[in-house]
């Protein structure tokens, strides 16, 4: 590959990176507010911190040899946010589970425990797979599945039946 092609590839990567960043920011915004119990001021501060962290990580750790795909970058972004959030929550010990602003409209959702709420959000809104959710939240896939099952039941108000295949169908 000559240097012209390399430069072209770099430009495309930058564009992809920018688009990924843009998409992830708006996607992450809703997640940030949801895990912060509906409080935008705390979520926005954390989101800005995360953005700086992610950019610096890309700069210093990945450097110019590192390549992250759109999905990987998105996952990295969510993981960084979750880590900052957990650190902040420990530092300031703010109550995030049952205190919220938007409880009237999304009461059931905000009544869910933090990890269950985060798992449900990442699955239903951000469309992450179980293994990605387990990497983002730092829990096992079994815990993620349990959180999703329980969370779906609570939000639905009855047992969520995933019985699409019938044995007599085959």
């Amino acid at each position: 590959m000559n240097s012209l092609d390399e430069n072209k590839e770099r430009v495309i990567n930058f564009e992809e990176l920018y688009l990924a960043l843009d998409a992830a920011s708006s996607d992450l915004y809703s997640f940030a507010i949801s895990v912060c119990g509906g409080r935008a001021s705390e979520a926005e501060a954390l989101l800005l911190d995360t953005l700086f962290l992610c950019l610096e990580k890309m700069w210093f750790v990945q450097n110019d040899k590192g390549k992250l795909s759109h999905d990987e970058y998105r996952e990295e972004f969510f993981t960084s946010f979750w880590l900052s959030f957990q650190k902040q929550a420990k530092l300031f010990q703010f109550e995030v589970n049952r205190h919220n602003i938007a409880s009237e409209h999304h009461g059931r959702f905000y009544q869910l425990p933090l990890f269950m709420r985060a798992s449900i959000f990442l699955r239903a809104k951000s469309k992450f797979s179980e293994d990605s959710i387990s990497r983002i939240l730092g829990i096992t896939e079994t815990e993620v599945s349990a959180n999703l099952t329980r969370g779906r039941d609570v939000l639905l108000g009855r047992e969520f039946k995933n019985k699409l295949i019938l044995e007599d169908s085959f």
Binding site: S25, Y29, A40, L48, A102, I120
Partner: peptide, 19 residues
């Protein structure tokens, strides 16, 4: 039942500027 919050334009602009 899962809330979807829309990013306020001024915050979006700030993020875009940084990026």
């Amino acid at each position: 039942q899962i809330p979807q919050y829309v990013m306020p334009p001024e915050f979006g602009v700030e993020l875009t500027k940084i990026a």
